[in-house]
């Protein structure tokens, strides 16, 4: 059993993931999340018992390859429909709070 690979989630990990996902967690929620995530990891921890030496990771559930799409324009959504679900918008644009110097 590869016990060394078992991950333990602590509060600083939760805070970091929340920050990366731009989620706001208060003290209480963060602590609950630590418990929840560790419970989930514990659930899949069972898998660590299996010897996987020499087994390639399984990435895809089917053997299908080369599922291409021809370079043709279709399935466009109208501007009105595209904007319809946005919490804030104008006639042309989605509007979001201003965040400068944080783009990627």
């Amino acid at each position: 059993m590869n016990t060394d690979r078992i991950m333990k989630i602590d509060k600083s990990t939760v805070v970091k993931i929340a920050e990366l996902s731009r989620l706001e967690l208060d003290e209480h929620a963060a602590e609950e999340m630590v418990v929840d995530l560790n419970r989930m990891l514990g659930f899949v921890e069972k898998l660590q018992e299996v010897n996987t030496d020499g087994v390639e990771p399984l990435i895809f559930m089917t053997d299908e390859t080369n599922v291409y799409r021809a370079d043709i324009v279709k399935d466009e959504v109208s501007q009105k429909d595209a904007l319809s679900n946005a919490p804030k918008k104008d006639m042309y644009y989605f509007r979001v709070p201003k965040v400068i110097g944080n783009s990627d």
């Binding site: 799409r69 370079d71 399935d75 466009e76 501007q79 595209a82």
Partner: peptide, 25 residues
Amino acid sequence: KSKAYSGDANEYGNLPNTNVSAISL
């Protein structure tokens, strides 16, 4: 002509948010 993973048009200079699809949105 179309986008990398969806069928909406790859065109510069159109009205904003007109070359979009459920996938690119």
